[in-house]
Each structure stands twice: as C-alpha cells, then as structure tokens.
Simulated assay, not measured.
Amino acid sequence: MTHSREKVAEEGPVLGPTGRPRHEFPEPPALTGHGPARIVSLCNQKGGVGKTTTTINLGASLAEYGRKVLVIDFDPQGALSAGLGADTHEVITIYDLLIGTVRDPFEAVQQTSIPGLDIIPANIDLSAAEVHLVNEVAREQTLARVLRRISDAYDVILIDCQPSLGLLTVNALSASHGVLIPLECEFFSLRGVALLVETIEKVQDRLNPAIQLDGILPTMFDARTLHAREVLERVVEAFDDKVLETVIGRTIKFPDASVAGVPIIQFAPEHAAAKAYRQLARELISRGAVA
C-alpha cells in the first residue's frame, strides 16, 4: 500500500486534456434568491464551433443546479430556438424587442422542457435588425436597454450570437458582463480568435468597460487525433488560464439531441458529453463567471 502511494506521488497529479492538473469542481450550493442576472455572450465569428450546443446545454445544466436561466437566440438562423423546441412562427421574438414594436421582454419569453430554463426565440426577421438599427441613436446599446427590463428575474442570461462580428454581435457584447468563446479544436478556428479578442477589447474600451473574457471552451475535441491535441496545446500556450479545464468532446449525440429538440443532459443524461456540460456549469460557477 505504501509503495502504491509513493508511486502516485512520483507520477504527480492527474492531468486533464489541457495538460493541467484535473480538478473536481464541487456541486454548487443552492441559491437563497434570484437575480440580478450575469449576462454572458457566447461568441465566435466562425460558424459550426458549438456556440448553440453550448448555450443549450450550459443553460440546461445551470437550471439543473437551481439557477433561473434565460437564453436568447441572437442568430437569424434560429438554431437555438429549434434546438429547444421553441415556437418561432407568429410569436414575439427578440427582433420585436430590438425594433421597439414590443416593449415588455416578458411577452417574448417561452418556457422550455427544462424547469428553470426559458428562451426568447429568433427567426429570419432578425436578419433585418441591423438595417433597422443603423440609424438609431446609441444603436450598439439597444439589446442592453431591452435586457435591463428583465435581468432582475434571472440568475444567468446567455446570448447565442450569430457567426459574425457585425452590429448584432456588438450589441450582445455591449449588453454582457462576460464572453465565453467556444473554440473548435481545429487549426483554422485558432486564426479567428485573436480578431475576436481584439473586438472584445474595442467594445471594452468604447462601449462597455465592464465586459471581460470569461473563458475559452475547447469543443469538438477528439483525443485520438494528434491534430486536435496539438491545437489544444497551442490554445493553452496562447491564452493560459483563460482556457477552461472543461473540454467538450466530439459525439453524434449532439445532433441526435438537436433533432429531438432537447438538451443532451435530458436526451442522454449519463453520456460523457452531458457530464462535460454539467462540469462546465460547475467550473463557471466556481470561477464566479455565473451565479
């Protein structure tokens, strides 16, 4: 037995995929009250990196831990709305709130199949929002004004941004306290992160001094490939402790859950991907990035 303990000590701590010691993030304590919300944008100008999947499953995991969560579909393609089974036809959407035809954001809120997780949906109408907003006074602050009317009712608000750095994304960043960057473990994904970080810094300098980078979340990681491991290593070298310890692996279960219109923690609660998103929720709570 002594020999075994000595061997563990010699080998050092168990390392996670990022090459850093693996931590056990504790189950978060229950909240005694709700609100005001910390607002987090999930942002990356590259498409297909896991923004929507992360918004859905992080939101669901936080709700599972007793948080009141609102997710906002801020992409005209409406993938978040579809992924949570929200109605997008002949209903009030985020577009109506942005252009001011509806003043009360609670009128746009829909409940999801996860208790404690609500959504404000989007549809193709949102693609016209940038044209409408371009002549507005303080056009970059439009979403912030909308969210001020609803943030006290939630602990966390997650904004699923479109894959672009246009006016809608700048609105999301201007309204947010933090940014989470899902990053596919693939070489070309690395190239755009510096540009995105530069945009966040510009928003911080000119529009929203309070915003900060909460973390970079490696997604679609396949430990069997040297390429994925090398990309992850380079990300950690470049961004150090801004890279989250939680890493989301590649799995067919994500599209299966999307077709079912439910989060993976509900579709396959014991799957490794579901456990990873619960760990992400615990990690962000332990970092103070969410309540």
Score class of each variant (00 low, 15 high):
Gly19Glu: 01
Pro13Ile: 00
Ala291His: 11
Val179Glu: 07
Arg287Pro: 06
Ile72Tyr: 01
Thr169Pro: 08
Ala86Asn: 08
Glu201Gly: 05
Ala30Lys: 13
Asp73Asn: 05
Leu58Val: 05
Thr54Gln: 08
Val102Asn: 01
Ile150Val: 15
Ala276Ser: 15
His23Ile: 02
Ser151Lys: 15
Asp75Arg: 03
Pro17His: 05
Leu42Val: 15
Glu201His: 10
Gln111Glu: 15
Glu184His: 08
Leu280Gln: 02
Gly178Thr: 05
Leu167Arg: 05
His271Cys: 03
Leu126His: 06
Leu158Lys: 11
Leu98Phe: 08
Pro13Leu: 14
Phe254Thr: 04
Ile92Trp: 05
Glu230Gly: 00
Glu136Asn: 10
Leu168Asp: 12
Leu173Pro: 14
Leu84Arg: 04
Arg278Ile: 10
Phe188Asn: 05
Thr112His: 03
Ala223Leu: 06
Gly35Ala: 09
Asp256Gly: 11
Gly78Gln: 02
Ala63Leu: 07
Phe221Tyr: 15
Gly16Cys: 04
Glu140Tyr: 14
Val71Ile: 11
Met1Thr: 03
Val49Thr: 03
Val146Arg: 15
Leu244Trp: 10
Arg38Ile: 02
Ala129Thr: 12
Ser189Gln: 02
Gly215Ser: 10
Gln141Arg: 15
Arg148Val: 08
Val134Asn: 09
Phe106Asn: 13
Leu167Ile: 14
Met1Phe: 09
His132Pro: 00
Ile248Asn: 02
Glu186Leu: 00
Pro17Cys: 10
His227Ala: 11
Asp118Trp: 10
Ala228Ser: 14
Thr219His: 03
Val137Arg: 14
Val179Trp: 04
Val71Gln: 03
Gln162Tyr: 01
Asp75Ile: 01
Ile150Asn: 12
Asp125Tyr: 05
Ile114Asp: 00
Asp75Thr: 00
Asp241Leu: 12
Ile92Asp: 05
Glu24Trp: 00
Val203Thr: 08
Ala268Trp: 07
Asp155Thr: 08
Asp118His: 15
Val156Asn: 06
Leu207Thr: 09
Asn208Phe: 12
Phe106Ile: 06
Asn123Glu: 07
Tyr95Ser: 03
Ser41Trp: 03
Asp214His: 15
Val91Gln: 04
Gly33Pro: 00
Pro269Gln: 11
Val236Tyr: 01
Arg229Gly: 02
Ala175Gly: 14
Pro255Lys: 04
Glu201Tyr: 06
Pro163Glu: 05
Gly85Cys: 04
Val203Asn: 08
Phe221Cys: 01
Thr32Gln: 13
